[in-house]
């Protein structure tokens, strides 16, 4: 008996996998049903639905990049402290001295890639008409995921706290100042006043809500850090779960009717 067979025959192995290796038809079916991760997929699929030239694999790649971001992001969180005192220097140290500081590179390049792949995924879903009934609602969830992907990228951009970061966020968030009614330089904001007191000032408008301050400062760093590391990822995870669930419930990858 080989070592491999011994291990696969042991009680521990069997307790984890519950059935023999997926080498024959029966066990290839069973593995899809009993494995937590694999049961995301159906047991069998149509050939064209998984053809690379049809799906471009872009949804899957986006999901993979999201996982890469989660893992490298958690590792970065062990090092990085989101305060004016430490933020920049922690990133500098990641570059110059920290072992596995390459995690930052992987995190950043994956983030850029994820923005691109989510666009391409949308592109292919559109071009195959896969948003048509019965998949309309999953497309809507997809658009939400698109926005959240961009927001994840945007909030993360601030964290290195270098010139690139704060000015990009300043330029981006200045737009909020012009929100109709809710920004203090937006049309209609002047109308919102009570007895001569403006309700919308630069200390109470949409931009202030976003930045936690009148300018991009420590409060902003804290706010963006929490949005980036906790709030948005939680929502994205939930939406991805629903998205995948709906792919299955809507009849799997789209096919000609």
């Amino acid at each position: 008996m080989s070592v491999g067979d011994y291990i696969r025959g042991s009680q521990i192995w069997k307790s984890i996998f519950r059935h023999p290796a997926p080498v024959d038809r029966r066990n290839r079916v069973v593995v899809m049903l009993t494995n937590f991760f694999l049961h995301l997929h159906p047991v069998s699929v149509k050939q064209q639905g998984i053809a690379l030239s049809y799906t471009w694999c872009m949804g899957g790649i986006t999901f993979f990049l999201f996982l890469v971001e989660t893992i490298t992001g958690v590792l970065l969180m062990f090092y990085y402290r989101p305060t004016l005192e430490f933020a920049f220097n922690d990133i500098l140290a990641l570059r110059d001295v920290t072992t596995l500081g390459i995690m930052r590179e992987i995190h950043r390049w994956s983030a850029h890639s994820m923005v691109i792949t989510v666009w391409l995924h949308m592109y292919r879903v559109f071009l195959t008409g896969s948003y048509k009934p019965p998949r309309e609602f999953n497309w809507v969830i997809g658009v939400l995921l698109l926005v959240l992907t961009l927001l994840l990228s945007f909030t993360g951009y601030l964290l290195p706290w270098d010139q690139l970061a704060i000015w990009a966020i300043t330029v981006g968030s200045n737009m909020a100042r012009a929100t109709p009614f809710l920004g203090y330089e937006g049309p209609g904001a002047q109308l919102l006043n009570i007895g001569g007191y403006d309700l919308i000032t630069n200390g109470s408008d949409a931009r202030f809500l976003l930045l936690g301050s009148r300018f991009v400062g420590e409060a902003t760093l804290n706010r963006f850090y929490i949005l980036h590391c906790v709030a948005i990822p939680l929502v994205v995870s939930l939406l991805i779960a629903i998205h995948f669930w709906r792919v299955r419930k809507d009849g799997g990858i789209s096919q000609p009717l």
Partner: peptide, 16 residues
């Protein structure tokens, strides 16, 4: 094109 060669295949191994 998508209707040709469109048999069902097992997810393991074809997709996985």
């Amino acid at each position: 094109f998508e209707q040709e060669n469109n048999e069902k295949v097992l997810t393991w191994p074809d997709l996985v």
